[in-house]
Structures are given as C-alpha cells and as structure tokens.
C-alpha cells in the first residue's frame, strides 16, 4: 500500500494533518526522476558540508583559510597529500571545496529563508489589506525588483570597504523578496474571496486570525516551493559577488576560490583549481532547482487531481 492510499483510506487513524499531507506529497515526489537526482546531489553536498570539519582536525595545514603546506608555496596539481592540489600559496584545495559547500548551504538557505519569510509576510499583508497598503507595498516591491542589485552592492562595499558574509546574506534577502511577495499576494487575493474566508468573517474572526489560521496554511506550500528557487539564486548571487571581489574576504566560498584562480592568473594554467568550484556551483544550483521542479509537481493541483477524484 502506498502512502497516498494510506492517507486517504485509513480514516480512523488519527494522525496530524501535516504528516498525511507530507506522505501524500512524498508519494508524488518519489515518481519524479528530477526530484530523485536533485535529492541525491543535495545529499552529496550535505555530506561535503558536514565533513568539512574533518581535514583541519587531521592536520592543521588542511585549515582552508590559514593552513599552508610548509613544503609547497605555489599551485600544484592533485596528489596523495592534496587530493585536489594546492593553491598559489600552498593551501589545500579539497578542504577549501568542502568548506565552500558549507558556506553555499549557509548563504543559500539562510538568505532564501529570510527572503521567503519577508516575501510571504509582505505578500499576505498586501493581498489581504488591499487598497492603499497593497499599492504602497507593491510599488516598493517594484522599485526593489528593478534595482540593479549587483551595482548597489558594489557601491555599498565601496562605502564600507569590507562586507561580512552575514551582510551579504541579509542583502540578498532584502533584494529577493519582491518576487515571492508578488506570488503570495496573488494567491492571497484569490483566497481572500473564497467562501471559507467569508465564513470565518461571519463567525467573527479577527483579521489576524484570518491571516494566520486560514490564509497562511494555504500559502505556505507555495512559499516552500519558492524557497528552493530562492536558494538557487542566493548561491549564484553570492558566488558572483565573491568572484568579483566583493565577498567576505575572511570566508572561503566557491566564488572566492574562483576569484583567487582568476586574480593569481591561474585561470587557464590550473584546471584542477578552476573546475571543482565551478562544477560545484553549477551542480548545487541545479540540484536545488530540480528539487523545486519536483515540488512544483507535488503542488500542482492538475497533477494531483487524477488521484483525488475517487
């Protein structure tokens, strides 16, 4: 018996609604090849991020930022001692790559979470309140959406000279919420006039209650979906910033690694240095994207209808 059957057939089994929903969603998700590939890739990256703590423990020269191989002071290719080789001052590339995965997750997920949180809250408020509030918030969203974010960041970094990774995360979140808020707003607008919202109004529910009890649970799945796409773009933005030299100089990220390759003129001389971070950036964004696509299939009611009719 598959999960979908479990959730609809066993009416007597008392189980929280969200578990049923999750199992139902999972059974649809499982059928998507894209989703499976994305999951496997993500698992690999997660493993990389977790194991990034190990190399420095083995030998302090594997410290990704400060550890330098005492015998090597130039870029060298892969060897038993340095699986991916070393960079121009003898730092281990493999341990840098592992830390990069950690930073990518950190930046991607926290920036995406923040932007989706902001976008969902603002979208719901704008959609539900309507009128002046709606106009104000949506014009603000428009302004931010058309602002060239890289340019603004370049200016900011020129002003403050050094940007910490958390500032970049916050910055990405502040620049990425308008897209989410637009989607959530339109969803809220369509929910607002549904009879079950009106029924809550007739029952005397306050606006807060309607927003949190009735609208939010119905838009959250969409927010989650958008979060996966936001992760993708957050990682790309961070990598781009770092590559251009506006990243956090005290953090090793894949973008930062690429910047070092380029800055030190190893672009075409050291493929063992250039390729791994480049491939990793592509693959991690791809895997989040595939995750999102598979979740899209789960959420798309047209696909769910087939099983729901009977």
């Amino acid at each position: 018996m598959n999960a979908a059957q479990l959730s609809t057939d066993n009416k007597n089994v008392i189980r929280p609604h969200w578990i049923n929903r999750f199992l139902e969603g999972w059974s649809i998700y499982k059928k998507s090849i894209l989703g499976k590939i994305g999951m496997v890739l993500l698992a690999v990256f997660a493993l990389m991020a977790i194991s990034s703590f190990i190399p420095p423990k083995i030998n302090p020269m594997y410290e990704p930022m400060s550890g330098v191989d005492p015998y090597i002071s130039k870029a060298t290719g892969p060897s038993m001692r340095h699986w991916l080789g070393t960079d121009f001052i003898g730092r281990d590339l493999f341990s840098q790559l592992l830390v990069g995965a950690r930073i990518a997750f950190l930046v991607g997920i926290s920036a995406a979470f923040m932007s989706v949180f902001l976008g969902t809250a603002i979208g719901m408020i704008a959609g539900y309140a309507g009128k002046f509030t709606d106009t104000l918030l949506m014009r603000l969203a428009d302004i931010i959406m058309v602002m060239p974010s890289l340019l603004v960041l370049l200016m900011l970094s020129a002003l403050f000279s050094k940007l910490s990774i958390w500032f970049i995360v916050l910055f990405i979140a502040l620049f990425r919420w308008p897209g989410v808020s637009r989607v959530i707003r339109s969803q809220t607008l369509s929910l607002k006039h549904r009879p079950f919202i009106e029924a809550a109004r007739v029952a005397g529910a306050s606006h807060l209650r309607i927003i949190f009890r009735h609208i939010m649970p119905n838009v959250l799945p969409l927010s989650f979906l958008y979060m996966t796409f936001q992760v993708t773009s957050a990682i790309i933005i961070e990598a781009a910033l770092a590559f251009l030299g506006f990243g956090d100089p005290s953090t090793v990220s894949w973008g930062m690694m690429l910047q070092w390759v380029w800055k030190t003129g190893h672009m075409f001389k050291a493929p063992y240095w250039l390729l791994p971070p480049g491939i990793c950036i592509s693959l991690i964004t791809l895997s989040f994207y595939m995750l999102g696509r598979a979740m899209d299939e789960v959420l798309d009611p047209r696909l769910r209808k087939e099983g729901e009719n009977y």
């Binding site: 979908a4 059957q5 087939e306 099983g307 009719n309 009977y310």
Partner: peptide, 10 residues
Amino acid sequence: HYHVQGGILK
C-alpha cells in the same frame, strides 16, 4: 472503466 490511482474504476 477508468484507470485511476489505485486501480480500475467501473
């Protein structure tokens, strides 16, 4: 008959 999720609907 219809093919539906979980079997055949007569």
